[in-house]
Write a protein that binds this DNA or RNA. Structure first.
Lengths: 339, 339
DNA sequence: TTGTAAGCGTTATCAG
DNA sequence: CTGATAACGCTTACAA
């Protein structure tokens, strides 16, 4: 029995002959080691938990951004010996079953947790972070003894978007920002402001609207911007979905993108190139975020001494039609003159 | 010890006083029952596996359709005492760790499996189906002693799309079908053909193209259709993403939707209303598919005698701009005359 | 109604 | 190098 265990775990102190005999038997019996029993004694589970907050209105699992992050996660985790457990926030009916995240984590002996789309101030999340279980957050600035995070260069990305529009001759640039409850929301706003300043453009507070990363909010914000006296000629949206909503609002008014209003999005989700017009956007390396979070988490699990890092991934401007950046810049010059 | 167990499991034979004392202690100690230990003795894990095939090119987790199904799954499973384990297809580096699905399932003592986006002829999938573990497939016609499936009324949906276009006056209707390797692909083709026949329309084989449910294939197929002598005036795409690709192809030629070509999609994914023009489509109840699969699976797990069912969910025509169905039907009459 | 004791399938610790 | 044996934390007879 013990020898079988040794063979299974690749321990060196087994004679080649015995080893082969054991493998033989394992194959013949179709033997699969039982994870539960092993977990019981080792304390390890080979399971990584994923917390992806499920609001009633906006299950974040549904936001294309997180889906792509999840793909990266899955891929990286999959090539290790771990599996992903989707931790549900929903309460169970049964009284003894763990309800909170932390309880579920302990229950399943989850070895590490990836946190996405969760509320930074949720006490449950706090509990998890403090628990000492290794955690990596994505797009969420959570820190702790065993908790780090991965995030795109949101400040730089927003600045990039502004600069691009400025280069195209735009001077009246507005922002449909993300929720300022979130770090990405705050950082994109910051990058937007800074670049405006750096370029010597006037900063109009009525040119800044706050959305929630989803289409409707982009549509509403855009409608408001269009009502402004001296409406903007260009808009940076802090998420592609909001950009899509904004385009809707523009088209609804009988205006055109990019001729009347230029749009730059953020994320470069799968459908960005499929929109009409195709969306100029700041590309986040979504899979990279997932992969990086996973890789770091695995290291955090393996090495208890490792200091949880804060990782920033670069972003990239992808020029398509919605900014008018692909056509010749005759119009740009005109706009620049108009100020 | 045993008494604690009894309290935890809500057994009746515990005095109210003792029961309360135990709960008290549990709360005080922040005690969380260990799932691994319990699993070891009960043989149950409270874990449902999810197989979502990850091709290199098209991780299906990335298809919006499956994402929404997953939301439904998660929600339903979450309100029971189960958690979802994402089973990775990727092989692990470690020799003893389970590689195939079935091994991973046994390894984790997964109680039931939801199958999505997998290849019907994959021997690994076959293994799982034959294993006797309760399974429910979504959009996949897998049957077995303990395996059933849930699927939309694809035949009816395709027919609905054709009829809608016919009602609008179209007579030259083409199909960008899904992969005929898949049941939905076959069924949508079938529905398309049948309805054409029923309406007494001629069936042109060059009006039927096969795609793979992703945008590029829609674009390619549409380009081919546009090259046809006597090109169609309307196209049914067997997936919204393909419809989006088709619209691209049309716009690229300087043609317009729906004026030159009307389009109807399939799925009603999140971004369908955000496309320009917004997409007329056949709505699948994606969350319903997930929820139904989950509910049925839970029953299958609870009752070993239960015959695994085949469930069909109704679909619904959602009229938006891309079919020209929202505008007045002057054009429709004209087209009808032209035949 | 409660406590005692025997497993569940592994790994880890010891002798041999 | 290999075979016993004791945990791991829980459930479940079985006794008390």
């Amino acid at each position: 029995m013990a020898t079988v265990s040794r063979v299974l775990n690749d321990y060196p102190d087994v004679s080649p002959v015995t080893r082969e005999r054991v493998w033989e038997a394992i194959r013949k019996e179709q033997f699969v080691p039982d994870r539960t029993a092993r977990s019981l004694v080792t304390g390890r589970s080979h399971v990584i938990g994923v917390i992806l907050e499920t609001g009633v209105g906006h299950p974040d699992l549904q936001h294309p951004f997180f889906q792509e992050v999840l793909v990266g996660l899955r891929h990286t985790v999959g090539s290790s010996a771990y599996d992903l457990l989707l931790l549900n926030a929903v309460e169970s009916g049964n009284a003894f079953d763990p309800q909170g995240y932390l309880r579920r984590i302990r229950h399943h002996r989850v070895e590490g947790v990836v946190l996405m789309g969760a509320d930074r101030h949720d006490p449950e999340i706090d509990e998890v972070v403090r628990s000492g279980v290794p955690c990596m957050a994505v797009d969420l600035d959570l820190r702790g003894g065993r908790t780090g995070y991965v995030m795109s260069d949101n400040v730089g990305g927003a600045a990039l978007a502004v600069r691009h529009l400025h280069d195209l001759g735009h001077r009246r640039i507005a922002l449909i920002g993300g929720s300022t409850d979130t770090k990405p929301g705050v950082d994109r706003l910051l990058g937007f402001r800074r670049e405006l300043e750096r370029l010597g453009l006037r900063h109009r507070t009525d040119y800044v609207r706050e959305g929630d990363f989803y289409p409707e909010s982009g549509q509403v914000a855009m409608a408001a911007l269009l009502d402004l006296p001296g409406r903007p000629t260009a808009v940076v949206a802090a998420a592609d979905l909001m950009a899509a909503g904004a385009i809707q609002a523009i088209v609804d008014r009988g205006l055109r993108v990019p001729d009347d209003i230029a749009i730059v999005g953020f994320d470069d989700i799968q459908i960005a190139p499929l929109l009409q017009p195709s969306l100029t956007t700041i590309r986040q390396d979504k899979r990279g975020l997932g992969a990086r979070a996973a890789r770091t988490l695995l290291r955090l699990i393996a090495d208890p001494e490792l200091e949880p890092p804060v990782i920033t991934l670069p972003v990239e401007l992808v020029v398509r039609e919605s900014s008018g950046g692909t056509v010749n810049s005759r119009a740009a010059e005109r706009r620049a003159k108009e100020g």
